[in-house]
């Protein structure tokens, strides 16, 4: 079944289990009611996943006016993502092999909705910043800056859980 995988997807886009279940429920209702619209192009799982992701995007757009973080000031619009990538190159190969999928999801749930949605679309859905900007009705600059900040936060959160794992092992 797709239940477990889709729940994993929904968990990434939401704050907690309840929200994830709401999206999941709504998504599966959509899936079943639109089964006849599945054209057979692409995998069925991919189709279901797209429905879940699109629902998450819709949800984000609906809530958008709640976010303080969108519509950042102008200098962020020209924010150069590459300079940051180079800066992080030094620790770019840090191993997160000890991190569990649950810890990643947990870290993502701690992000603000804007960071979370942008990060998800960029990393897991392979959206470009242009795609994200269009989907979320934000500027490309905002998408880039939100992504970079989300990435930084995720790394911070994950290294925290990694340290925790290590301490546990050493005890």
């Amino acid at each position: 079944m797709f239940y477990g995988k889709m729940k994993s997807v929904c968990m990434r886009y939401t704050r907690d289990n309840d929200q994830a279940m709401d999206v999941l429920q709504e998504g599966f209702v959509k899936v079943f009611n639109n089964l006849d619209r599945y054209t057979g192009v692409g995998s069925f799982e991919g189709w279901i996943r797209r429905i879940m992701v699109n629902l998450s995007i819709d949800r984000f757009r609906k809530l958008k006016h709640d976010f303080v973080l969108l519509g950042e000031n102008d200098n962020l619009e020209n924010w150069d993502i590459h300079s940051n990538e180079q800066e992080e190159e030094k620790d770019g190969d840090d191993a997160i092999y000890d991190i569990t999928p649950e810890q990643i999801i947990d870290a993502m749930q701690q992000l603000s909705p804007a960071y979370r949605t942008v990060f998800n679309l960029y990393v897991f859905e392979n959206y470009s910043h242009q795609d994200i900007a269009e989907a979320l009705e934000i500027s490309v600059g905002t998408s880039k800056s939100n992504y970079a900040k989300a990435r930084k936060n995720i790394r911070k959160l994950l290294s925290k859980s990694l340290n925790l794992n290590l301490t546990r092992e050493n005890e």
């Binding site: 995988k5 729940k7 990538e85 770019g92 990643i104 990393v123 790394r155």
Partner: peptide, 23 residues
Amino acid sequence: NTFENQLRDKLAGHEMPYEPQHW
């Protein structure tokens, strides 16, 4: 980008446990 790739690998095919209540 190794960090993103690692995240993708980690979550590829990841499944959450099934909860009868929600079903």
